[in-house]
Design a protein around this nucleic acid. Structure first.
Length: 471
RNA sequence: GGUGAGGUGGCUGAGUGGUCGAAAGCAGCGCUUUGCUAAAGCGCCGUAGUCCAAAAGGCUACCGAGGGUUCGAAUCCCUCCCUCACCGCCA
């Protein structure tokens, strides 16, 4: 209670970020309010632009199918489905009785207007209407609460996997779809950190000194290579694959994070600054560019390529892959985003994946493409392909791109539609094209020469300004 | 950071507390006229929820969001969010 008073004095923006620091430095996690985030019970943020992301009609019309498809993601979703349906029934009952009262009130109010206009007495009717005010108020609050609760539940239910997505429990059930190239012959493979440090490309110790673990600092030719990769990737996608380059803001509003599905569920993975969020991926700003718009279908598909750094707390993976460039709190990425018509999204996902694969083909890097099974699928995705590049020094494949079809899941959340007979939700697709740090790892470990230098693929020469990196 | 002005349908833009879901214009759709185009005339043209087995139709809500006043709010009051303009500071 004491906290509530203090909280109320602060800017809602900050409070809604989920953490509140009181005068003693205590961190208070505000109450989950059902508005799509952690906020104060009275907070009304987010309600305005948040749409239910799964169609409630689908729940009503075919609950068994919804249940069955969610069950393929893993256990634990049934209760939410049941709760949504129960709330839906209650909500509709409350709305119906409320509406009956409202209709009666409107009728009487009009009558009062008529009586007054003709200078007749209306006190009796006025008293009658007034007598029902409390009942109406109560019903209206009840129905609003049910409606908010339902929306909140829906926001936390993941997308339905496409029916043909292979069913499986975890990553071990992901089928390999294709393999490109072959593992390079490296006499004595070395870890990229050793290679990069020997060549003076990165400075992990000083990176840790200024930012802590999980950050990279590229230096000299290492920094130049990073910059070369950004330019190479953007040029490839904009010149050869028809994407429009976008350079978006790196700090974005909460509702955009809700729009693409990072929130409300994954707030712990995000960095926040002053009520805004640091982009966890360019997917967020770029897909949201057209939020709340009704697009001309003749303009679709819209294809964007964007470079941004990506900021992630990696909250759930403390201690994993802490060394090197493989898992960091900040990394660079070029992201591909498409907004398209529903009937084309399946084909657009295939071509976007092909565009991302092309990066590795042009660089001559061995890779494989896997399909994520239902249990490994991301929250918002209906179907996902992962592209994994071979890293000889790790003796492992590294995920450099995750290409997903979200169907209308994100579009619903951000109210992104196209004009038609009836305005319908667009489909959205995105995939990395590609993540830079892991690509960097693969390039160093695959191009390693016996003398410790690294030979770069010809495609990078004009961007890097040399064909190899030597001491 | 300071000050001011605003947020109304796909867009522009009116709106006196009661018949306003909201004038008008543009765009869109249909029809008529004309040899085609163009133009003109007429009509239609928001979203969501809910009732009905469904259609037809009815009802309810929505004028940035939330709350309040009132028998009745786009209109009055409060809070918040957002946008724009000017000033200051700054790359």
């Amino acid at each position: 209670m004491e906290f509530a008073g203090k909280l109320a004095e602060r800017a809602l923006d900050f409070v809604c970020g989920g953490r509140f620091f009181d005068a003693e430095g205590l961190v208070v996690i505000a109450e989950f309010c059902g508005h799509g985030g952690f906020c104060l019970p009275h907070c009304d943020k987010f309600v305005q632009s948040v749409q239910p992301m799964l169609d409630i009609r689908q729940f009503r019309d075919d609950p068994e199918s919804v249940r069955a498809r969610l069950a393929t993601r893993g256990p634990g979703h049934e209760p939410a489905v049941d709760a949504v349906l129960a709330l839906d029934a209650g909500r509709r009952a409350a709305e119906t009785s409320l509406q009956t009262l409202q209709a009666e009130r409107n009728r009487l109010s009009r009558e009062i207007g008529r009586l007054r206009a003709s200078k007749q007495d209306s006190a009796g009717i006025e008293a009658e209407v007034k007598a029902r005010a409390a009942e109406m108020h109560e019903l209206s609050e009840k129905s609003a609460k049910l409606s908010d609760d339902q929306r909140s539940l829906l926001l936390n239910i993941p997308n339905l996997p496409q029916p043909e997505v292979p069913v499986g429990g975890d990553a071990s059930a992901n089928p390999v779809l294709r393999v490109w190239g072959e593992k390079p012959e490296i006499a004595s493979p070395r870890d990229h950190v050793a290679i990069a440090e020997a060549l003076g490309l990165i400075d992990p110790d000083r990176a840790a000194k200024i930012s802590g673990s999980g950050f990279a600092c590229y230096t000299g030719a290492g920094a130049r290579l990073e910059r070369a990769l950004i330019n190479f990737l953007l040029d490839l996608h904009t010149r050869e694959h028809g994407y429009i380059e976008v350079s978006p803001p790196f700090l974005i509003r909460r509702e955009c994070m809700v729009g693409t599905g990072q929130l409300p569920k994954f707030e712990d993975d995000m960095y926040g600054v002053d009520g805004l969020f640091l982009v966890p991926t360019a997917e967020v700003p770029v897909t949201n560019l057209h939020r709340e718009e009704i697009l001309d279908p003749a303009r679709l598909p819209i294809k964007y390529a964007a470079y941004t750094p990506c900021f992630r707390r990696e909250a759930g993976s403390a201690g994993r892959e802490t060394r090197g460039l493989i898992r960091m709190h900040q990394f660079d990425k070029v992201e591909l985003v498409k907004i398209c018509l529903p009937e084309n999204s399946a084909a657009e996902l295939e071509s976007l994946t092909a565009d991302a694969e092309r990066v590795l083909q042009v660089l001559g890097l061995h890779y494989r493409v896997i399909e994520l099974c239902t249990g490994d699928l991301g929250f918002s995705s209906a179907k996902t392909y992962d592209i994994e590049v071979w890293a000889p020094g790790q003796n492992a494949y590294l995920e450099v791109s995750s290409c997903s079809n979200f169907e209308d899941y994100q579009a619903r959340r951000m109210n992104l539609r196209f004009k038609g007979e009836k305005n319908r939700f667009c489909h959205t697709i995105n995939g990395s094209g590609t993540a830079l740090a892991r690509l960097y790892v693969a390039l160093l470990e695959s191009g390693l020469q016996p003398d410790g230098s690294v030979v770069l693929p010809p495609a990078l020469h004009p961007y890097f300004g040399a064909g190899s990196i030597t001491r």
